[in-house]
Amino acid sequence: MRSRRYRDRHGRGLRSPLHRAQVPARLSRAQSFAKVAAAEFARMREREPALLAEVIFAIDGVPPASSTEPCFGRVFPATSNRLTHIVLYRRVIEDHAEADTRDALIAEVVADQVDILRRT
């Protein structure tokens, strides 16, 4: 008797997801990046709660087209109608990092952006 394989209707792949919903292998690269960056920013916020209490942390894919120099992240200072923002650029960081050093580079970029904020 022949075992039956469950494939999609065109015969090219599995019908169901390969990983369950909460497994780290199921996360996309963007979700994995966001998770690491948010954890690093939370760790920095615990160290310096007075400085980072009203700072908004964001992740963008690429820097705006108007920027003239390459950058991993940017600090947007507070104005009268906007809070301070720290923005990391995911694609730039991923392009410059090796697979095993990505998390360290994210931590370094977050630390650099907080240091820039501290100096302003």
Rank of each mutant, 00 (worst) to 15 (best):
A50C: 05
P49C: 05
S3G: 14
V114Y: 00
T120P: 03
R74M: 15
G13I: 04
S80T: 07
R2T: 09
A111E: 01
L117I: 01
P63H: 02
S3F: 09
Y89C: 12
A104E: 15
R91I: 11
P77F: 05
V92T: 12
E98I: 06
R119C: 06
G13L: 04
A38V: 09
D8R: 14
M44A: 15
A39L: 09
P64R: 02
A99V: 13
T120A: 13
A78C: 14
R102Y: 06
I56G: 07
L18F: 10
T84S: 08
R29K: 10
V75R: 00
M44V: 00
P64E: 03
P24S: 03
A25Y: 06
F33H: 01
V92R: 14
R43T: 00
L51G: 04
L14M: 12
L105I: 12
A34M: 08
D95Y: 08
I116Q: 11
F33L: 02
D95Q: 15
R29E: 14
A38M: 08
R2W: 12
A107F: 05
S3Q: 10
M1Y: 06
V62G: 01
A37R: 04
A25H: 07
F41L: 09
V75N: 03
L117N: 02
D60W: 11
R15W: 05
A38S: 11
V110C: 00
R20S: 12
V114Q: 04
K35N: 12
E94K: 01
T68Q: 13
V36A: 01
D60C: 10
S28C: 08
A34L: 08
F76D: 03
P70N: 07
R119A: 15
L105F: 08
A39H: 03
V109W: 01
E69H: 13
R74G: 03
G73V: 08
E48A: 11
